[in-house]
Amino acid sequence: MKLYQIIGILILLTVGMSSCEEIIELDLSNSEPRLVIEAAVDAESGAGIVSLTKSNGFYDPISLELVTGATVTITQADGTEIAFGSLADGIYIGTGIVAEEGDVLSILVVDSEGNEYKANSTTPHSVSIDSLELIELERGGGSFGGGDEEKLYQVFTHWQDKAGTESFYRVRATVNDTLKTNVYTLADDLLEEGEAMSRPFFDIFEGGDTVEIQLLSIDKPTYIYYDNLSSIQGFGSSTPFNPKNNFDNNALGYFGVFRLDTETVILPE
């Protein structure tokens, strides 16, 4: 929970019964659809996946407009170009990408109208999970929700920070093979340089769940992007803004090279 979320709850508590929420219809201006590029390269396996979609109006139906007919190319640090193929509408994949720690990879996306979008990302160091720690949450006294039957858990991930380098991490989780979205568990080594690190995944799990924890090592721009994303999805108290990203030409989204380690646990019922 972010600080302002807690403050938000406190505000609601303070005003008690008096506050109320209602749905309103606002006359919002609509922007021109903008290209959204989500591009990630797994430096471990050498596989890259790029999805191209378009933004739409706030009150438009939730449907993804997939962008087809684009060309996607990644240039390795040694100058080798890897051309991506289209896997499905709006999904492009590339394989055999060589990315050593510190290598800067660049991506070029050209849409069917010839507009070019570029970004760079630096390959981070590798990381491995030392252990997962399960903490069963107390019922009744706690402030967390959930049914009365299942046990509730918090999952902590423990790992060793690489010494002598600035590091950025993200912990992701899948529950029964479904990725938890809109949860950003981020960590940097600013205060824990070279130390053993540990973070709880910022959500709770129920007994019986199969949880796969993914620990990602990412570069700084990607970290900032995720951090921005998480802060605008909070309680809404901060001045809203669009996340700072690494693409040019007004494209939304990001390009990031990452390394990851995974560990799976089945939570006791």
Binding site: L26, L28, S29, N30, S31, P33, R34, V36, E38, T53, K54, S55, N56, G57, F58, D60, I62, L64, L179, T181, N182, Y226, L229, I232, Q233, T239, P240, F241, N242, P243, L252, G253, Y254
Partner: peptide
């Protein structure tokens, strides 16, 4: 204030696209 002028998906989640600062 700043209101959204659109929306898009990223990282499996829906994100609001915001307009200019304090334009609303």
């Amino acid at each position: 204030v700043t209101f959204p002028i659109g929306k898009y998906f990223i990282d499996g989640g829906l994100v609001n696209l915001y307009g200019d600062r304090n334009a609303d």
